[in-house]
Write a protein that binds this DNA or RNA. Structure first.
Length: 282
DNA sequence: CTAGGATCCTGTCAGC
DNA sequence: TGCTGACAGGATCCTA
């Protein structure tokens, strides 16, 4: 579930509670969710590669955390913090059925919850993080890449729908289902357009759209995530506030008033304004 | 090599 | 009520 902006928000938010703090015990409740030996240690830094969060320890080891679809990190101490896939777990009694790993810190507990068990925590040598197969394959993030580079990559996937190409982390890193849809809407490009049919100007519009929607999310992420932990169970309002198409099927396009529709592209639910997002013919 | 579909897993919701 | 299938903010593996 979490895409780059959510993971960046988690990185910033969690730092406040676990940076320079020591966890003295780790409890693994689901073996599938943990790869490698059990470790303990003091957190010396939190980094991010695309959607992967890296927690470096003072022992020369690091934890690579990927939340995939339904992962969550929830801090319970004097204060509370929760981020990741929004659900009742943010305010639930923990640990519960979906708790996979428990980190016991001296002044609180960090829970890794993950309904579908697609996420994982992997122990790596800090010196080897960048050589990890997943990390190594990641492409640049939208801010590190220019339109020409992205255009050139599109030419290697001429026949794939542009949405599929945007979701491929080895082509451009950080977008997931929400931001792919939102970036394409911003650029006025239909998700089913073949990547090879786009001209450089359109590719640039997509890249700028991706930067814009993700930056907006990061800039507001803190407050958005904060609402998730309120005791009344209020959900984050990112989608209501910022999404122009995602999960707005049946509602009116903010640009032209046409009805937003939901279709299936690259095996994923895809939201599009059929009037102002065009498929290039060629 | 690319493109597309199945798959991992649990839970929820719509439709019968 | 109970069953069934579709689907889900991700990524990999398998096949053609």
């Amino acid at each position: 579930m979490p895409e780059l902006p959510e993971v960046e928000t988690i990185r910033r938010g969690l730092s406040k509670f676990i940076l320079n703090k020591k966890f003295v015990q780790v409890e693994v409740l689901c073996e599938k969710s943990w790869v490698g030996e059990r470790v303990t240690g003091t957190v010396v830094s939190l980094r991010r590669y695309g959607k992967a969060l890296i927690i470096d320890l003072n022992t020369g080891k690091s934890l690579m955390i990927h939340l995939r679809m339904t992962g969550q990190l929830i801090w319970r101490g004097a204060e509370q913090y929760a981020a990741g896939h929004p659900s009742e777990n943010f305010v639930a009694e923990l640990p519960n059925k979906q708790t996979r790993v428990v980190f016991k810190f001296e002044d609180g507990v960090l829970y890794f919850n993950d309904q579908r068990k697609f996420g994982f925590i992997k122990v790596l040598l800090t010196s080897e993080v960048e050589n990890d197969a997943f990390i190594k394959k990641l492409a640049k993030e939208p801010w590190q890449m220019n339109a020409k580079e992205l255009y050139d990559k599109f030419q290697h996937h001429k026949n794939a729908p542009v949405k599929a190409v945007l979701l491929d982390q080895t082509i451009i890193c950080g977008l997931g289902n929400i931001y792919a849809d939102e970036a394409l809407f911003d650029a006025g490009v239909h998700p089913e357009t073949r990547a090879g049919a786009l001209d450089e100007k359109q590719v640039e519009a997509i890249l700028m759209g991706a930067r814009k929607v993700m930056q907006e999310s990061i800039d507001s992420g803190g407050s958005t995530m904060a609402t998730y932990v309120r005791a009344d169970g209020t959900r984050g309002d990112y989608l209501e506030k910022f999404a122009k198409v995602f999960r707005r099927e049946g509602e009116s396009c903010v640009r032209c008033g046409a009805k937003i529709v939901k279709i299936r592209v690259a095996g994923r639910g895809t939201h599009v304004c059929p009037k102002c997002q065009k498929v290039n013919d060629d």
